[in-house]
Structure formats: structure tokens, C-alpha cells
């Protein structure tokens, strides 16, 4: 009996190796039972779902520098859209999607922001969800990975640093570029150049006038605007005043773009931890969270 058992297990493993599946993001071949692509670390469930159920989700990217608030924004977006059943409703699929929501909400509820996303793509959480919108007759699938700001910055600055970022952005239908509004006020030039570099990278990645990034929708989302009320009041005037070069760059390179202001916290305090300032939200009152995502989906409809 034990011998038979071993034989069966080996044959199962062999079958997995023989039958291979192409990664949905980078196109490289992987064992059928692999959880993540061994080349780019994208979840293989996307490929399996596409193959077996013929589901081709709309892929959206969320980009931005480190600690810009991408994870907080994404977690809150999932929670808000899954709580209210109005024009736009979201049903998160899979443990990874719910993990983003759970970790963000738990952290915010306890008066802190979620941990920074690790740099290596194998640790990233992916949002896979079904979206119900009044503008579309049928629900549709959306995928949005919680990418690390450092990994994206490395890829933008030194191409081919992160194959997942490159492959994913090549396939994306639209993007949310997150900008920390408080950093804009402190160090305008850095944020200006950082976002411009990202836009340039996207346009070079796929330069086709009709199908390339210049014609794909891009929402530029300012976060932490509770500390920058002028941005909340008139986001375009804020951009023209503080990031004039970025404003012009967007006009020149992106045909479909819009600026948004969002905030999760009403006010913040901070503590110093290992020489680094750690912001602590004093209360959570989300504002302008759904609008950028809704605009993006409408543009993609």
C-alpha cells in the first residue's frame, strides 16, 4: 500500500510538469500547479481563470512613490465599494483581495496606516474583483495589484529591473497615479519629476497613438489632502500652481487624464520610529476615494 501511494504522488507531480500554463502577465510557461509565475511572480490563477472560464479581466495599475498612500487608498476603495450597493458595487474574489481590505481596515481602525508594501513582487497582494456598474449591463472583472512604490520607481529609472511591472503595465487598460499632496508642498520639484518620469515610461512602453498609453485613461490622484485644503477645494488650480510642469506634461502626453483629490484621514499626528516619521491618522473620514476609480471605469466602458 505505501509503495502504491508514492507512485501515485510522483505521477501527479509529473503530470503538473508536463502540462504547462502560460503566465497571463508575462507569457512565460509555468507548471500547472504553480501558485505564482516563477518568472514574474504574478498569480497563476489569472491564467487558469482565463483558460478554463474564458475570463479576461480589465487590468488597472496603481503607481506612485513609496508611502504615497497606495495601499491605504486601495484597501479603503475595496471596503467602500463592497459596503455600499449603489451605482458602483464591488465583490472581491480570492483571499488576496480580501487580505488587502482586511489589513488596511484593521490598521486604520486602530489608528495607524497599513505597512509599506514589500519591494519583492512575490509578496504583493492582488485585487481581483467583479464590478457591478450602472453604466454596464453585465458585471465585469477587474485586476489591480498593490505594487510597491520602490519596485515601480526602480523599473521606471532602470528599465528591466522588475519584469512584472513592465509586463503588467504593457497590458494595462488604465492607471491611477498616486501623488502625496503633502510632499508636493514640501518638495515640489521631486514629485513633479517623479510623476513625469512615470508618464514618460508608460508612453515609451507602448507608444502607439491609438492603443498606446497616450490614449489610455490615467487618473492622477493626490492623497493626504486633509493636510492641504487648497488641493481638496480646486485640484486643477492646485496642480497649475504647484506642479505646473506636470500639468503641461499631461496636456502634451496624455489625451485622457484627470486630476483628483482624496483623503482618508481628517487630521494626523506622528511619532518618530527608528529615526523615521510615522504618521498616525487621528480620525478616518474618507473623501474623494471612489471618484477616480469610477471615472477610470467609465472611460474604459
Amino acid at each position: 500500500m505505501p509503495k502504491q501511494g508514492i507512485t501515485q504522488l510522483n505521477s501527479f507531480r509529473l503530470a503538473g510538469v508536463v502540462s504547462q500554463v502560460e503566465c497571463y502577465i508575462c507569457g512565460e510557461r509555468n507548471n500547472e500547479n504553480a501558485e505564482k509565475c516563477r518568472h514574474c511572480s504574478a498569480p497563476m490563477s489569472l491564467a487558469i481563470q482565463a483558460k478554463s472560464q474564458k475570463v479576461h479581466p480589465t487590468m488597472i495599475a496603481m503607481l506612485g512613490s513609496r508611502s504615497a498612500g497606495k495601499t491605504s487608498y486601495l484597501g479603503m476603495l475595496i471596503d467602500m465599494l463592497s459596503r455600499q450597493n449603489q451605482q458602483l458595487h464591488l465583490i472581491a474574489n480570492g483571499p488576496s483581495s480580501i487580505e488587502i481590505q482586511q489589513s488596511t481596515i484593521a490598521a486604520l481602525r486602530q489608528g495607524r496606516f497599513p505597512e509599506t508594501t514589500p519591494e519583492h513582487p512575490s509578496s504583493w497582494l492582488w485585487l481581483a474583483c467583479q464590478v457591478h456598474s450602472n453604466l454596464r449591463r453585465k458585471p465585469f472583472d477587474v485586476v489591480l495589484p498593490d505594487m510597491s512604490g520602490e519596485a515601480v520607481a526602480n523599473e521606471v529609472n532602470r528599465e528591466d529591473e522588475c519584469p512584472l511591472v513592465r509586463a503588467y503595465l504593457g497590458k494595462c487598460a488604465g492607471a491611477l497615479i498616486v501623488v502625496d499632496a503633502t510632499k508636493v508642498l514640501v518638495s515640489e520639484r521631486e514629485e513633479d519629476f517623479s510623476v513625469m518620469k512615470t508618464i514618460n515610461y508608460l508612453c515609451e512602453l507602448h507608444g502607439d497613438q491609438r492603443k498606446g498609453w497616450s490614449n489610455r485613461p490615467v487618473a492622477i490622484v493626490y492623497t493626504k489632502t486633509d493636510q492641504c485644503e487648497s488641493c481638496l477645494e480646486d485640484v486643477e488650480a492646485f496642480t497649475k500652481q504647484h506642479l505646473k510642469r506636470l500639468w503641461q506634461h499631461c496636456q502634451d502626453h496624455l489625451k485622457r487624464h484627470r486630476f483628483f483629490a482624496t483623503t482618508l484621514a481628517g487630521a494626523c499626528a506622528f511619532r518618530w520610529k527608528h529615526g523615521e516619521r510615522v504618521d498616525l491618522p487621528l480620525r478616518i473620514e474618507p473623501r474623494g476615494v471612489i471618484e477616480p476609480f469610477e471615472w477610470l471605469l467609465n472611460e474604459l466602458a
Binding site: L108, R109, A269, F270, R271, L280, E285, P286, R287
Partner: peptide, 23 residues
């Protein structure tokens, strides 16, 4: 004490946009 960028006055009670009931 928590550090703040500017001196603050106390607030209590929550508002119409307070997301978490524990706040």
C-alpha cells in the same frame, strides 16, 4: 504625547463622515 505639526484643540463625538464606529 503624540507629535503634531501645529498645536491642536480637542475634538470629540464623530461626524457624518466618520467611517469607523469606534471613532
Amino acid at each position: 504625547r503624540l507629535a503634531t505639526d501645529e498645536p491642536m484643540k480637542s475634538l470629540r463625538g464623530g461626524a457624518f463622515d466618520t467611517y469607523f464606529e469606534n471613532q
